[in-house]
């Protein structure tokens, strides 16, 4: 129901952030998210940053995926 894309915050000014997704940059409102700063990754939905991405949790999920699949990342390429 809700498209949300991870992007990196380039700058925050007056409650609006510039978010970078692979070189495409879009402004996103920070009205729904507290404490996110430059270089944080956030999920952008409908022009708003709705949550920060937790880098450690992401690593943990990737590790669980590696375990479940039995395919280690270094085997991939």
């Amino acid at each position: 129901m809700c498209l949300g894309i991870p992007g990196r915050i380039i700058e925050v000014k007056d409650g609006m952030a510039v978010v970078d997704v692979a070189g495409a940059r879009k402004t996103a409102s920070m009205a729904l998210l507290e404490g996110a700063v430059k270089d944080d990754y956030v999920i952008v939905h409908a022009g708003f940053a709705i949550e920060r991405i937790d880098a450690e949790k992401a690593e943990e999920t990737l590790r669980l995926i590696s375990e479940a699949s039995g395919v280690q990342v270094n085997e991939i390429h």
């Binding site: 991870p6 692979a22 990754y41 992401a58 990737l62 590696s66 479940a68 395919v71 990342v73 991939i76």
Partner: peptide
Amino acid sequence: MKYIDEFRRKKQAQAIIERI
């Protein structure tokens, strides 16, 4: 693309699909 590409790995996807 960070937090996108690493969640699109073919071998892992196929292996888990097989497990399901």
